[in-house]
Design a binder for these strands. Structure first.
Lengths: 345, 345
DNA sequence: CGCCGAGATGTTTACGTCAACATCTCGTGA
DNA sequence: TCACGAGATGTTGACGTAAACATCTCGGCG
């Protein structure tokens, strides 16, 4: 008995009970408490009950810091994310959280307030003293590429939607296939060509959607109109939509996400161009509100949940088994609703 | 020198460098490394540089578990949340993350997959071995009330939007004022009465909005139509909206959130009732898409960012200063757009 | 009747950090 | 010239846990 035990209930904050306190209360050794705490089966039933009772009585909860120090594992994974304010990121995060939780890991969120190289370094620094066993990156990968900072050496990582990055295993949505489906759908309906409201150039997702749009057009011998580039926001979609509405040649628009598609819809309404009568519109993401847009939006459904789940799985495989998984591609599905129709002749 | 030092670069994973390794490399004591690591100023500039160089060379990063064990602080706060899939929760989480990060805390997310008492217990258990200094609850408080589980004793907590809970300091949005503004606005426009598409009864927010709606109507001598109760989803709004659209007496609708308002808009469009010509609609939340709905939605703006910031502030005050803050109420603002107009006469 | 081994339980120690305290080196002023 | 103190640096130990190893208690069997 080296340290002063328990201390009669001091008035202010008192020290949280430790294994030693429980051990004393239950008249066993600390090791036995540890065994009960970790669910080992080599403890006598009566002893276990006694220990459990002591734990409850004292309100014992294991000190995760000490446990982590001893085991070298935090049972937590980190997520580095630029913004939660996009539908896709949020859904992905939701899925990651659930998957991690199911695997008995908690989730540490490391925000990158502004998508600049500097901020990314800050996030990595934070990561350095964060208590995580691995990290999932949900960032605009271009920035990451340019960034001179490195992830801590030996920290397992998985990167989402940055296909082609060789440094880490990645989980990607098949953006190209999605864009292809969207454009194909409009062309099949009889539209001569399809205009594109793209996402920012620095985003890999945006780039891949744009490239696939152009390629599909080319394959069908349709000429590609100039690209209108937005920043994913409804406002951008609205502004760009106004331009498109003013151009009578426009009969079909493929927006790189649902929020911009919504902006386009609004612009069309305000300009008196009927959707889908005069102009057909297709989005990308299939956010939960899209089916209630007016008109309900034809869009490309992404399986964000699947992306999140696979990322966690790949990461934990590396954390626990020490083996890297390969890249993984999640498919996509076209959901036809009421914002698309054949062109008026 | 008790333990085997460094070990020549073993092929597989090698032990992460510790303070002792850095100390050896820089020819100083571990304590000096600790001082540099913690930014103390009582270290000679030359020594500091030497230590810093050694840290870089070895790729040292502090072991947060050991630090937490020693200091008793994790520098992390937990967030217990039912679902990320609601606009408000997401925005709140975003703000919490940013505020925590600014204060040098990381954020641990503890999901509660399904809003049942059992799941809540599971979350609390998880919390028990999560490494957090305090916790912010973003849950439907009714469930929490009924739950027999308790938060770990002595763990500081703040609860969001559960006004009246006496156990913890809370940060609430002034839901009642918001509902009042919405109803008042419609009444001022000349509507005889206002119909209400409410949120689920088990939600305090929903209850408060509903009560304030009823009270405002009563104050103006308007009779309160039966309440239509939804589950916050656009689908529910749509179903309920169809009922409202079929009733020619309906000229004004107050939906308890923007998503249900969107569903109502769609139902009105499909039923051929003009908004705002035949029916005016007001929402609640002001999600970023609302200004692009068709027509752009009049709604009650919530300052989710402020709620998140204040929660973190209150929590950290308790964590660091040991003093509880009182409750805090965040105001709200009516944003008039184009979904409301005087009734057709 | 004593030996063996399985299962239950206890003892020791190290994980990496930092607070408290100890020591050492100077420059300054009497 | 030397005592003093400020500032730099070192030494020791404890935080709570769990792995490795040690011991103890039995029941079964030759």
């Amino acid at each position: 008995m080296t340290t002063t035990p328990g201390q009669a209930t001091a008035p202010g904050r008192r020290r949280a009970p430790s294994m030693a306190d429980v051990a004393r209360e239950a008249n066993v050794s600390g090791q036995t408490v540890s065994r009960v705490s970790n669910g080992r089966d080599n403890v006598d039933a009566a002893t276990r009950d006694r220990v459990l009772a002591a734990m409850t009585k004292l309100g014992y909860r294991p000190n995760s810091a000490a446990r982590a120090l001893r085991t070298g594992r935090f049972r937590s994974i980190g997520v580095i994310m630029f913004t939660l304010s996009s539908f896709g990121n949020m859904r992905t995060l939701d899925a990651i959280t659930t998957a991690a939780s199911d695997a008995g890991y908690s989730l540490t969120l490391i925000p990158v307030p502004h998508p600049t190289k500097g901020e990314l370094s800050v996030a990595f620094d934070r990561l350095a003293d964060a208590a995580v066993d691995g990290v999932i990156l949900v960032v605009e990968a271009h920035l990451f590429d340019e960034s001179d900072v490195e992830l801590p050496d030996g920290l397992p990582a998985v990167i989402i939607d940055a296909s082609g990055d060789e440094r880490f295993p990645g989980v990607d949505t098949d953006q190209a296939h999605g864009a292809r489906l969207a454009v194909q759908h409009l062309l099949d309906l009889g539209h001569e060509t399809v205009w594109h409201v793209a996402g920012p150039e620095r985003s890999y997702s945006a780039t891949r959607r744009r490239d696939a749009w152009a390629a599909t057009l080319a394959e069908h011998g349709a000429s590609a109109p100039p690209v209108l580039e937005g920043d994913w926001s409804t406002e951008a979609g609205y502004e760009l939509g106004l331009e498109l509405a003013a151009n009578p040649a426009v009969t079909a628009v493929f927006a790189a996400n649902d929020q911009m598609a919504l902006g386009v819809l609004r612009a069309m309404h305000e300009s008196g161009r009927a959707v889908p009568g005069d102009v057909s519109v297709v989005g990308f993401d299939d956010m939960s509100e899209s089916s209630s847009f007016w008109p309900p939006l034809t869009t490309v459904h992404q399986y964000f949940g699947e992306v999140g789940r696979r990322s966690v799985e790949a990461l934990l495989h590396e954390v626990e088994a020490g083996e890297r998984r390969g890249n993984s591609l999640v498919d996509v599905e076209l959901v036809v609703r009421q914002s698309t129709a054949p062109p008026r002749r």
